[in-house]
């Protein structure tokens, strides 16, 4: 078995890249593959609480974050310097890494897929 990191960088509302990246994560998990997530750039907005997208804007992918535990996806990493000023507005399940740990993250998986 391989361990996989899915790195989301796209805005959840500008395209369906985040959606398709998360779909892949769920499938990998369903097939009992070890998979972690990490978020950077525009994908960080996925973490903001109280999102209420209209159907035209896309699915509410934020809601899926709370469901990840049922897929045994245990880690959602971000780089600590990218944290929002007020952590209270963010999804609480994230693991934030300092710059060194963040850089190392990408070499600790057999494969990294970006969306």
């Amino acid at each position: 078995m391989k361990n996989t990191l899915i790195h989301l960088t796209s805005s959840p509302y500008s395209s369906i890249a985040c959606k398709e990246g998360l779909d892949l994560a769920l499938v990998l998990a369903t097939f009992e593959q070890k998979v972690d997530l990490c978020l950077s750039d525009a994908a960080l907005s996925l973490l903001t609480k109280h999102q209420q997208p209209e159907p035209e804007q896309g699915k509410n992918l934020h809601k899926l974050l709370d469901g990840l535990e049922f897929y045994d996806i245990e880690n959602v990493f971000i780089e600590s310097s990218s944290l929002a000023p007020d952590p209270a507005t963010q999804w609480p399940g994230i693991t934030s890494l300092d710059s060194a740990a963040w850089s190392e993250l990408f070499s600790s998986y057999q494969q990294v897929f970006r969306f």
Partner: peptide, 20 residues
């Protein structure tokens, strides 16, 4: 094919290269 086919490919080859 479903993404399951991709998981199979992934587990039966040494390296995966993504082109995006």
């Amino acid at each position: 094919e479903g993404l399951g086919t991709f998981v199979e490919l992934m587990n039966s080859t040494q390296k995966i290269i993504q082109f995006r």
